[in-house]
Design a protein around this nucleic acid. Structure first.
Length: 836
RNA sequence: GCCGGUGUGGUGGAAUGGUAGACACAGGAGACUUAAAAUCUCCCGGUAGCAAUACCGUACCGGUUCGAGUCCGGUCACCGGCACCA
């Protein structure tokens, strides 16, 4: 029988299109629910990338197995379609972004259907659909009403050459991605979301979640919670200054203070600062630096002393100088830090440059060479009066308590996380449903006015004053205030592309609801998502943002769980062959030439796929040449799911070969129904192995187990019953071929259902055990042979069998066995030493 | 610099502290074929040996253990994230 994958795949996709075997049923209480989720794709003009099928296929397989395990499965798909690439494509080609989006979605849908995914196609969402973004706007309004959305002046990236505002991703190494022009900061009033109010909960609630560890760690580091002390210093200016420090124990080592150039106190102290002109010049220079320049590595510390300003150390009243320096950030802590050059490397560099004293307060380093920064908190305090002799660990709380008691200190928790800049000066995004009224200030639209439709504009080009393209649409901008009825202006900025993806998993539960964003019934039934897989690149963006939104929705009582996703896994990237790899050439000269030209890139056999390298693999081509089932199988077999893997055209053939071998089994079966005696143990073992591997996302070893079983069928022959089980095990991986074989063999008729609708085969533990096992024989821990013995043989039997072997005899000749270690059914280790 | 991860044949990769290299790709040999492709069978870490076999071998050094790719201490390399966060 010939495996005509093209015809087979078309046939079954057409049938599924009509019979909808993947439809999820809300409120089916007869079965437990399983909600599997993959990150919905951004429908780019390039179409599906070969990286997409990896996570999609994996969760498709998990979902299919859950379905066979009796679950009511929700496995949905949609499109995250607002965003910059579409807008730029539209500008370049003079096509409306909505049309571009529609075309791209159609192409993605075609490709996804060709891969045979078990998505519930009746629940597709599209973030650019007004019926969808109505509710994105609605959630934003709820946040606004609860005070979580506020307006503030924030710098945007401004290309001095194109004279447009740029998104962060359009700024590459401080330059404009398009023209290479210099990017500076330009102040603009923007909407912010107060994600920092949720910082503690976003960290603490991670503990109860089944996320892979690196996701948790990365989110925790990103939020960056630190425990410290706010310490207040008196000054000769009339104002007190407060610093934040995690090392209040080092306060005896403070030899100067530093204030950030942006700090408002400087302006206030203008008349008291003796060298104001110099300070003002330094501030101006700092403001001109881009974030990139200012953050550049290992750059020299700069600064100016504030003449006439004295700060008094609260611990001993000592007068210390203050400097302004741009190594202190205005956005973290209080914008002022105490300089402890003995125990902070940055302070050490600054003090060394400006000739400031360096005091050792923790023993153990050589502070004339570098700051002594502790790796642990076991260092001993010195030069610190009542702290002397204490460990740092004890000194921190001791000094903190002292400071609190004496009224100049306060316990303080700080976060690195910043509030979320929620506006973009762009066209292709959700309009913000707020109106600016000269009398009433910012006024939200009435919810009945939603959705606030994105108007059609002639040109989506960003304006040359940094405003959104919508600002040019005066008809749309000019409106009336919902509160007082007077003339008012709409907000013309739009939401960032992350907005729509913050809550899409909720919409899938109830995608056609026009009166609520999700019904209570559907949310309580489907929530939370049981398993969410997505890229590591979204860990501190989409994943964190959507957890934040979900917590907000929980707080206002519209969802019933604290967290959106119970489990999170992440897939590795698919790389392409590196055409410039040094392994591709033979001579040393050629290798050197490649390294000179491409640097360390030339030493990698595989690199990120890109058009310029010509190593992009198009899923369409693979499907055409080998079929979707081969594509699915190969992308799962390629390696450890979490690691990056290199695409190999040769290796794809191996997967195809395996499917050919499976298909050919149809011509080899005996008439015997049920699992054959010859294959009993193998079949049961494989059921067990494939099942547990799918649950653990170890698809590569699951497939290896299936290959092993098929190899055994080739060696020993197989019954109809053996094949019946195999087809069911293959079904989640290669659904088209499985159904074709299932039907061919008459199993569809026999059971009255498709293979995918069968229960997952059960294994019998007792039948996974072979009658005999091969055991390793070791002498003093070294392998000296193997023996075949009855399963569960005792020590005496195994040793006796081992002693029969020539190699063992030889190795134990003239020796006495002093100890025997038996690992049941695995090995026996004889510890011998020379006989007396 | 800090945090996380990884290091195994020619290649992708397997191995709850228990026979390292499962399963594949590539390569080699054979069968079938007029021939090729496809298919089927066998071989395939290194060194020595006709072989039986011996020794070496999971980045490197050391330790724990009857036994270490796996655990512990240290070193190196690479990948990813963060980065003047006080």
């Amino acid at each position: 029988m010939h495996y005509d994958f093209a015809a087979i795949e078309k046939k079954w996709q057409d049938r599924w299109e009509v019979s909808k075997p993947y439809a999820a049923i809300t409120g089916d209480t007869t079965r437990p629910k399983f909600y599997g989720l993959i990150e919905f794709p951004y429908p780019s003009a390039a179409g599906l990338h070969v990286g997409h099928p990896r996570p999609f296929t994996a969760i498709d397989i998990v979902s299919r197995k859950k379905r066979m395990n009796g679950y009511n499965v929700l496995f949905p798909i949609g499109y995250d379609a607002f965003g910059l690439p579409t807008e730029n494509f539209a500008i370049k080609n003079h096509i409306h972004p909505a049309i571009v989006t529609k075309d791209n979605i159609a192409n993605f849908t075609r490709q996804l259907k060709m891969l045979g995914y078990g998505f519930d196609w009746d629940r597709v969402v599209d973030t650019t659909d007004p019926k969808y973004y109505k509710w994105t706007q609605w959630i934003f309004l709820q946040m606004y009403k609860k005070g979580l959305a506020y307006k503030t002046t924030m710098p945007i990236n401004w290309c001095t050459s194109c004279k447009v505002g740029l998104a962060n991703e359009e700024v590459v190494e401080g330059k404009c991605e398009r023209c290479g022009g210099e990017v500076v900061r330009k102040e603009k009033s923007q909407w912010m979301l107060a994600i920092t109010k949720y910082a503690d909960r976003l960290i603490d609630d991670l503990d109860d979640l089944d996320y892979i560890e690196r996701v948790k760690v990365q989110q925790k580091n990103w939020i960056g919670r630190s425990y410290g002390t706010d310490a207040t210093f008196k000054t000769n200016t009339g104002d007190d200054v407060t610093v934040y420090t995690t090392r209040v124990d080092t306060i005896f080592g403070v030899t100067y203070m530093v204030i950030s150039p942006e700090h408002p106190l400087l302006e206030k102290w203008k008349d008291q600062i003796g060298n104001w002109d110099e300070v003002a010049e330094y501030r101006l220079a700092a403001s001109r630096k881009s974030d990139f320049e200012r953050g550049e590595l290992n750059k020299d510390k700069t600064g100016v002393r504030l003449e006439g300003i004295e700060i008094y150390n609260p611990i001993n009243g000592k007068a210390i100088p203050m400097f302004v320096s741009d190594y202190v950030l205005m956005g973290y802590g209080t914008g002022i830090v105490m300089g402890v050059p003995g125990h902070d490397q940055r302070d050490w560099e600054f003090a060394t440059k400006f000739g400031l004293p360096i005091i050792e307060v923790v023993k153990g380093g050589d502070i004339t060479k570098e700051a002594f920064v502790l790796k642990d908190d076991t260092g001993i305090m010195v030069n610190s009066e009542f702290l002397n002799g204490m460990t740092v660990k004890d000194a921190i709380p001791a000094m903190r308590d002292y400071a609190v008691e004496h009224g100049w200190g306060k316990e303080k928790v700080n976060f690195k996380l910043r509030d979320w800049v929620f506006t973009r000066q762009r066209y292709w995004g959700e309009p913000i449903p707020l109106v600016d009224c000269p009398k009433c200030g910012w006024v939200p639209l009435d919810e009945s006015e939603l959705p606030l439709l994105l108007p059609n504009v002639e040109s989506y080009e960003p304006t040359d004053d940094g405003e959104s393209p919508l600002a040019k649409m005066t008809d749309w901008v000019k409106t009336t205030c919902p509160k007082c009825g007077g003339p008012a202006n709409r907000e013309t900025d739009t939401m960032p592309n992350w907005a729509g993806s913050c809550w899409y998993y909720l919409r899938y539960m109830d995608p056609h609801n026009d009166t609520e964003f999700v019904s209570k019934e559907a949310e309580e039934y489907w929530g939370p998502v049981d398993w969410y897989n997505g890229g590591m690149e979204h860990t501190t963006l989409h994943l964190l943002y959507s957890r934040f939104w979900h917590k907000f929705l929980y707080d206002i009582g519209v969802v019933h769980t604290k967290e959106p996703y119970a489990k999170r896994t992440s897939h590795g990237m698919i790389l392409g062959k590196n055409p410039n790899y040094i392994g591709n050439v033979d001579t040393e000269e050629e290798k050197q030439a490649l390294i000179e030209k491409y640097g360390s890139m030339a030493t990698r056999p595989a690199v990120k796929m890109s058009k310029s390298l010509g190593n992009v693999v198009n899923p369409d081509d693979v499907i055409k040449a080998y079929g979707a089932d081969t594509m699915r199988l190969y992308i799962m077999f390629i390696g450890d799911f979490e690691k990056t893997a290199a695409w190999s055209d040769e290796a794809v053939k191996g997967s195809k070969r395996f499917l050919d071998r499976c298909f050919n089994l149809q011509d080899m079966v005996s008439d015997e129904e049920g699992i054959s005696a010859a294959n009993m143990a193998s079949v049961h073992k494989t059921i067990k192995k494939v099942g547990s591997d799918i649950d653990e996302l170890k698809m590569n070893t699951a497939i290896a187990a299936l290959m092993t079983l098929v190899n055994e069928f080739y060696a020993k022959g197989l019954s109809r019953g053996d094949l019946e089980v195999l087809i069911q095990l293959l079904s989640p991986f290669v659904p088209h071929m499985a159904e074709e074989m299932w039907e061919n063999m008459g199993f569809a008729a026999k059971h009255g259902k498709m293979a995918m609708q069968m229960s997952w085969p059960e294994y019998d533990e007792s039948k996974t055990i072979d009658a005999q096992v091969e055991m390793a024989v070791q002498i003093n821990g070294k392998l000296r042979g193997t023996v075949i013995v009855p399963t569960d043989s005792d020590e005496a039997t195994v040793v006796a069998a081992a002693m029969e072997q020539e190699r063992v005899k030889k190795a134990t000749e003239g020796m006495q066995v002093v100890k025997t270690i038996l690992v049941k059914n695995k090995l026996v280790n004889l510890i011998v030493k020379p006989a007396k």
